[in-house]
């Protein structure tokens, strides 16, 4: 696969937490690629580093989080990119959907203002044109009464509408890459399904490359061609979604799969994952000696991390 066909190519990406007490690696040696107009699910528990990976790619890490390594967007290096260039890409070619629209959207500014901020920054559209475009965007994400919504504030909308508005905002400038960080976690099951279908539909219609961050393998199975499984700041397995769902190679992936509810299996008590995510302070010691373990290609395009005594012991 050459670099021209890749929307995103991440190599040896790490994120370090700087605290007064020292530095802690939160993400280590992460490698993955996302082909143009394709979909990749980044899966793991809370604390696995999947959101930090996404934020590092989007350049949205907080000041005390330091990224290193490489993340190329259509061949252009994102890590350490100058502020002005980053601003030009953010919102226009890279869109970001956050988990909690209620807090990710401004509580007081009308939806119409927030939805057109990206257009205002990145296009030469007039105020009236932006307003018209905002209405189109709301229709695109399946909302009606768009004129009313533009005058509303986020608190006046229902949960599902909020996430649709969030998505409309992220795609307002027709980005090439859409990063969605747990876009359905704050929603109830029915709405989850609708939002996932919306994202899948938009991805196909607009030819987006979609990086979907989630803890839910079921969501990945529905939406993503490829998947990367993260555990304790590292990728432990990646490959084609159908293949990994069929033959999970890593013990942690198997545990995740077992912990996913299946239809027709309602009576079964879901197992909890025995290999609990380690504390951040422990990962420093884990990483210390050897660094991230290498991934081995067990079958074409299916990579699994070498099993070591860490998992066996857990």
């Amino acid at each position: 696969m050459t670099t021209d066909t890749l929307a995103l190519s991440v190599q040896n990406l790490s994120v370090t937490v700087r605290r007064p007490g020292g530095r802690y690696p939160a993400v280590r040696g992460v490698d993955f690629t996302l082909a143009r107009s394709s979909t990749l699910g980044l899966v793991g528990e809370s604390g696995s580093g999947k959101s930090l990976t996404a934020l590092a790619v989007a350049g949205l890490l907080a000041d005390n989080l330091v990224p290193a390594g490489s993340a190329r967007f259509h061949g252009e290096e994102l890590i350490g990119m100058p502020e002005a260039r980053r601003r030009a890409l953010s919102g226009s070619r890279i869109g970001f959907v956050f988990q909690e629209p209620m807090s990710a959207l401004h509580p007081v500014l009308p939806i119409g203002v927030q939805l057109t901020e990206g257009l205002r920054a990145h296009t030469s559209l007039t105020r009236a044109q932006r307003h018209g475009r905002a209405q189109e965007l709301l229709e695109l994400v399946g909302l009606t009464k768009t004129r009313d919504i533009l005058g509303n504030r986020i608190g006046q909308l229902s949960g599902g509408m909020r996430q649709r508005v969030m998505i409309a905002m992220a795609i307002s400038c027709e980005p090439d890459l859409l990063i969605a960080d747990e876009p359905t976690t704050a929603l109830d099951v029915t709405l989850q399904k609708q939002v996932i279908e919306l994202l899948g539909g938009l991805q196909e219609r607009l030819g987006l490359s979609l990086l979907l961050i989630t803890h839910d393998l079921g969501v990945v199975a529905q939406t993503c061609e490829n998947v990367a499984v993260m555990y304790a700041g590292e990728i432990v397995e990646r490959g084609r979604t159908d293949q990994i769902m069929r033959e999970p190679g890593h013990v942690y992936t198997r545990a995740l799969l077992d912990a996913s509810p299946r239809i027709g299996d309602a009576r079964r008590r879901l197992p909890s994952i025995a290999t609990a995510a380690p504390w951040l302070r422990d990962t420093r010691e884990l990483a210390g000696a050897s660094g991230p373990a290498a991934l081995r290609e067990v079958s074409p395009q299916h990579w699994v991390r070498e099993q070591d005594e860490r998992e066996d012991a857990a």
């Binding site: 989007a58 949205l60 980053r86 601003r87 030009a88 890409l89 953010s90 919102g91 226009s92 869109g95 970001f96 956050f98 909690e100 807090s103 990710a104 959207l105 401004h106 509580p107 901020e117 990206g118 920054a121 990145h122 905002m169 992220a170 307002s172």
Partner: peptide
């Protein structure tokens, strides 16, 4: 969080 969102839209710090 909405400040991070504004940043993700590529807005200028002044804005």
């Amino acid at each position: 969080p909405f400040v991070v969102t504004a940043k993700s839209l590529g807005l200028r710090t002044s804005r």
